[in-house]
């Protein structure tokens, strides 16, 4: 990525995964804007959020931002080719920074001017390739850290939206339906994770266990998953 170019082009083309989606780009943008909004409304101490994506020409772009100030902080990172978001996309790892940070002086100054004291960037993986990042900004130092699981889950949802953007756009789902689908998918994922740890089984076996319980009890899988997630250490809760 060291030879890549970065520019802030909010109206520019979306990621190659979304190529061929010209008619539904608006829908995809709405989905990503929804993720940005969810980050602020559902994760404590998140005061600003954005999604950066790699465009087909290798440039990083902020496709959704909670404010113009956040968009400018992102843009500084793209121009300098450095900062937590750029680093998360380069390395595929989560990056947490408390401000000020001498390593990235322009980004540090710009983010502080926007009132931010810490930033957490999560890489977005679409089919094993890092295609962007979910960036969470906080006016408190390190306060995002305890909320990492919720944020990671949201980053996973953002990547899921990107990976399935074409299908989601053509399925004509309302935002509420999509939100519900993602929440249920996430809940089932959590329950599978709990069962994998508790029963020492893989993900497919965890799903099999949930669906057998659904079959045996005549209840929906999401209801079984909710019980498992609510009582993670209780073997009877499944």
């Amino acid at each position: 990525m060291s030879d890549g170019q970065y520019a802030d082009q909010p109206a520019g083309p979306l990621h190659p995964e979304l190529a061929g989606l010209l008619l539904s780009e608006q829908t995809v943008s709405e989905l990503l804007a929804m993720i940005v909004g969810l980050a602020i409304s559902t994760i404590e101490d998140v005061d600003g959020s954005s999604i950066s994506l790699m465009s087909p020409n290798g440039r990083l772009e902020t496709t959704s931002a909670s404010s113009q100030e956040i968009r400018l902080v992102d843009t500084t990172q793209y121009q300098d080719e450095q900062g937590p978001c750029v680093e998360a996309i380069k390395t595929g790892r989560e990056v947490v920074v408390a401000l000020p940070i001498g390593q990235w002086p322009r980004f540090s100054d710009r983010a502080q001017q926007a009132g931010m004291r810490s930033v957490h960037s999560f890489p977005l993986r679409v089919r094993d390739r890092v295609t962007g990042a979910l960036n969470l900004y906080s006016t408190s130092v390190t306060s995002i850290e305890p909320r990492t699981d919720a944020a990671r889950s949201l980053a996973h949802q953002a990547a899921t939206v990107l990976a399935n953007a074409a299908a989601l756009a053509t399925a004509e789902m309302t935002n509420e339906q999509l939100q519900q689908a993602l929440a249920t998918r996430d809940l089932i994922g959590q329950a599978k994770g709990i069962l994998m740890g508790r029963e020492n089984i893989d993900a497919d076996a965890a799903f099999d266990l949930l669906r057998r319980l659904s079959q045996r009890s005549g209840r929906k899988l999401k209801d079984i998953a909710a019980e498992v997630a609510a009582h993670p250490s209780d073997p009877k809760a499944r």
């Binding site: 990976a163 299908a167 399925a171 689908a181 249920t184 998918r185």
Partner: peptide
């Protein structure tokens, strides 16, 4: 497909 996706399908 939406139902399948909701259950975790990829």
């Amino acid at each position: 497909w939406v139902d399948y996706f909701t259950l975790g399908g990829s």
